[in-house]
């Protein structure tokens, strides 16, 4: 299944709760302020990297670029555009938004 997270992990525990509740092989897409969760060297980076062993983490390129953090993404996080978001929603059997 696909999980989306749209909150900065520095003000909200959505990413934390999400990463605790993902099954093997799930996809996690960071959108809106959620893309800050993909920052290299942040206090949540270790947890994000650890999760990448069992889930694939994506970030929405429009939101990454808008926030000027494109060159600060953790290696291995996949960039998708809106069409890629649609594709993820279609190829996974359901979507949960961690609002």
């Amino acid at each position: 299944m696909l999980h989306t997270v749209n909150k900065s992990p520095f003000t909200n525990n959505s990413l934390d709760s999400c990463l605790d509740c993902v099954g093997n092989g799930a996809a996690v897409l960071l959108i809106e302020d959620g893309v800050y969760g993909a920052l290299k060297g942040s206090k949540v980076a270790d947890k994000v990297k650890a999760a990448m062993g069992k889930v694939t983490i994506y970030a929405l390129s429009a939101d990454v670029k808008a926030r000027g953090v494109a060159d600060k993404m953790i290696d291995g996080i996949k960039m998708v555009d809106y069409a890629g978001f649609v594709e993820l929603a279609a190829e996974n059997d359901k979507v949960h938004s961690w609002l």
Binding site: I31, D33, L60, D63
Partner: peptide, 19 residues
């Protein structure tokens, strides 16, 4: 909030892909 913007871009992209 950005929610409506993201939803709009998602909807437009889905329609463009024939969904």
């Amino acid at each position: 909030h950005q929610a409506s913007d993201t939803a709009y871009q998602f909807t437009k992209a889905a329609l463009e892909k024939g969904h």
